[in-house]
Design a binder for these strands. Structure first.
Lengths: 338, 338
DNA sequence: CTGAAAGCGCTAACAT
DNA sequence: ATGTTAGCGCTTTCAG
């Protein structure tokens, strides 16, 4: 004897209520056009009355799709999470784009070393159709492992070695070169840089941009101190820079947070910005508009990075071709610090 | 004729390889103790060799669980997302706690007005076992709707009306009162506040704390300008405050971002902090340590809010009882601004 | 302690 | 255009 289904309505429930078969109800639910208008109407009414909602697990089981995408944030990302607007911006961009495509965003925070395996297992379980990897450290093996596991992947940021999966990145170097030209145009001659970590592509390319930009300056020697993109490191790097070379008249910091740190050190040591030292940052996060003085910075379209990531992964899971690399432009935003 | 299963291995595949039945393999996978050690060993080996990973959709279909929890960020949250470390912190806290419990975090960004329905539909579909709602605006109907839909819910922040679902919050008022006592103890007598929006509980309670704290000051009249928790509004509110009352000697801002804004306005108008005007913020986000001067602020344990939210929802979905309200302490962190 | 069998709710041939 | 049927991969009685 079958119990009266006390639980939530199923296709069967709706079918009986509407005097149709499960298959037909399924067709209506999935928007097939081959259903007679009047019966479709009856079915829709039944669905509404019963408050029927399809069971995604059952659907996935047969379709082999889940309509959800994982966004993996590696440990290095969660570390920055608290004070840098980059990852929140990317999350938002990806989230909004996926929402429009009616896909779900599953957030995988790889906070610990061991979560590597967990992620691999999870992705293997096919709980998601594809993966967006917010990779930072270029040497990360995860993208390749995921690819080998047969999962659709797209990463944020070009990998350090050979790119084996499609990626979205920005024009780091050319943006920095624009910043350098701006400084040189301002008459600055002793231009230093606070670079990012050299095990990240963003760190390397921004440094490369600085070095290239410096070429334009007759006989100028590079002056580099490395930071980790965070504010504190910018403060400290600026100190070292001034110790090495007290008459610096400009500094390019590879992130806005480090630029803000530099600003603080400069002020503390009695340098006026931009009068004595011009400062340019990179990222154009919200904070950059509120430093003192507001930061001239290289803008990168963070939100768009997110939407493009989403776009690419959606293409990929749909079996379409995607460009192996999308590189978004950066632009110099001039404010008061340079 | 059955095709050779070219796809991923299933329970059946493993069972055959290990010479056991699906049921037994399932028992091993789910950690049943009633399996003979030698056959368990054989099965484990087969699982490893074949790289078997259970299909979560199939499992959910029968268990009616998904082992994943949704974190819903309402529109008002995504707006703040770019410059406030509160939500990223909560995400991280929730994410880490769920990871430990081997649950997945599904992020639902309610970026638009229409996503309300989408969320309800989604949750109805039982793709998640429970919901953590990062509600901001107290009047939000979503918690109640979710509860009525029979979904386990816990919210961040006490709702404005009657609390119908369990929540995690912090001691807004008492934290602010501590800040007020600190200011009064410093000898400040004309204490203003930049309040948060009054349609949010956090905004209201912090204002209530200010008013209560002011009681201690003989004959002091409240001096209030409202902001929206963001930096810009702090700058503007500070201006209005000084217009109304040029001899303010202290200000409590209901968020660090607004306090930072106030700092900038004060500096621009030639007031020294803390000499002329003492400033205290609320939140203790990373930024507070790097303002000029560093902010004295009311610390709230953002990360812990996240972990407690996760803890509560996990209890709830496990059918356990939870306290209807958990209110975490706040503490005054004294830095240079007051 | 292990296996056989039923069925979770849905979609997709295949018939009609 | 609609209905029938056969699973998707797993867990869970129920026998043995």
């Amino acid at each position: 004897m079958k119990q009266t289904p006390a639980g939530r309505p199923t296709l069967e429930t709706v079918a009986r209520a509407a005097g149709a078969s499960r298959a037909t109800v399924s067709r209506v639910v999935n928007g097939s056009t081959t259903v007679r208008p009047d019966i479709e109407e009856r079915i829709r009414r039944a669905i509404a009355e019963l408050g029927y909602v399809p069971n995604p697990a059952a659907r996935s089981l047969v379709t082999q799709r889940t309509d959800s995408i994982a966004l993996i944030l590696p440990e290095s990302a969660t570390r920055v999470f608290s004070d840098d607007a980059f990852f929140p911006g990317v999350i938002r961009g990806v989230g909004e784009a996926l929402e429009k495509a009616d896909k779900q965003l599953v957030l995988l925070l790889a906070s610990t070393r061991s979560s590597h395996d967990r992620i691999l297992r999870y992705v293997h379980g096919r709980t998601v159709d594809g993966v967006v990897l917010a990779s930072m450290h270029g040497a990360d093996t995860l993208p390749e492992e995921l690819r080998l596991a047969g999962v659709s992947v797209v990463t944020s940021g070009r990998p350090l070695g050979e790119a084996t999966v499609p990626y979205i990145d920005v024009e780091h170097a050319s943006g920095v070169e624009a910043a350098m030209r701006h400084l040189i145009g301002l008459g600055r001659r002793r231009i230093a840089t606070i670079s990012g970590p050299q095990d990240m592509v963003a760190g390397r390319e921004r440094l490369a941009g600085y070095l290239a930009g410096l070429e334009e300056l007759e006989g100028a020697a590079p002056l580099v101190e490395e930071g980790d993109f965070m504010r504190q490191s910018g403060m400290e790097a600026m100190e070292r820079l001034l110790e090495r070379e007290p008459d610096i008249d400009a500094v390019f910091a590879a992130s806005d947070l480090m630029a803000d740190g530099a600003l603080r050190t400069l002020r503390r040591l009695g340098r006026r910005v931009p009068d004595d030292v011009a400062v340019i940052g990179f990222d154009d996060v919200e904070t950059a508009r509120f430093t003192d003085p507001p930061l001239t910075t290289v803008h990168q379209p963070i939100h768009e990075i997110g939407t493009r990531l989403a776009e690419q992964i959606l293409r990929l899971v749909a079996g379409e071709e995607v460009e192996p690399a999308v590189v978004l432009p950066t632009t110099l935003v001039v404010r008061d610090s340079a």
